[in-house]
Amino acid sequence: MGTVKLLKQIDNAFFREVGEIAQFTARFFQTVTKPKQEWEEFVNQCFWVGYKTLTLVGITAFIMGLVLTIQSRPTLVEFGAESLLPSMVSVSLVREISPVITALICAGKIGSGMGAELGSMRVTEQIDAMEVSGTNPFKYLVVTRVLASTVMVPILSSVGIAIGLCGGYLGVNIRGHISWNLFWHQAFEALSFGDLIPSLIKTFFFGFAIGIIGCYKGYNSKKGTEGVGQSATTAVIVASLVVFVLDLIAVQVTDLLGLT
């Protein structure tokens, strides 16, 4: 009986949270369409999201490209398909690895940052102070951050693909030899718009989800400093989970549209 009650409570909390996030998202769309955008703060957030995450995304993408190449080589050698390495690395990076890894890094860095920053502003009454001064804190804090992550995650993912391919080039050249031009020629030859466009579109959704969840958790933070920590942690967990769910949906949609 106790277990049933507990499951019911978990269910209620889950659906309440989903409903609240939906409401928060609806408020975002209502606010973003109203005039007088906070462009200065938007650019500031783009810098924070993009520039400050670039090193982390770059290093990770380079290592992923390198490791993927090194680990795939023996299998391809076994089938005499070593020459397909550049094509395989580019398709893997473009379709899946770079968008998902970039989104997960951003969920960790940006999601937790937004959760903690807005959470601390909430518990120290800074958001109330903005409201009292006549500034719409939702527009100033939430809309700018969500837009910045929606715009910057696709850019970061694209940069990640380029850097990952550089890692792949190094990986190919550790055991074999391929010229710089031939590597890039083979990498691009294997790609089609069916690979690039769905990958780019899904990163917009990843960025939007990371921004919305990070801001939702921070903006609705409660219970003092403990709540701020909780907001940051749950923002990362929920955003990462949502990234995987969105990726699964994107794969299904791409498949249905015959783009795979």
């Binding site: 502003m121 120290t124 009454e125 800074q126 109330d128 102070a129 409201e131 009292v132 006549g134």
Partner: peptide, 15 residues
């Protein structure tokens, strides 16, 4: 609100 000033207990300065 522009005509009403508010001093918060926690000061609420933007840190």
């Amino acid at each position: 609100r522009a005509e009403v000033g508010f001093l918060f207990q926690s000061n609420a300065l933007y840190d």
